[in-house]
Amino acid sequence: MKWLELVQVAGATLVAAVTVVVLYSLGVRLTAIAGDVTEQKPAWLRPLAYVCFGLCGAAVLFGLYLIIPYFGG
């Protein structure tokens, strides 16, 4: 039986999905905080949110890069 492959697939799925979701959620959260009008907040909040979205996109692209044989992955 291919238990090892099963575990590999489960692990890869978990890591990939959690990475994407956590980064995107942080982005959403930071955008929300940055959008609050009442509070006194540091100026780096919004850029940081964009960094999170960017990292999330980069993670997805990296995943695709690994998978598509054309790129030698």
Partner: peptide, 12 residues
């Protein structure tokens, strides 16, 4: 998406 891509890439 992760599950499909991971599985088709890793052969399970």
């Amino acid at each position: 998406a992760s599950a499909i891509l991971a599985s088709s890439h890793l052969g399970f």
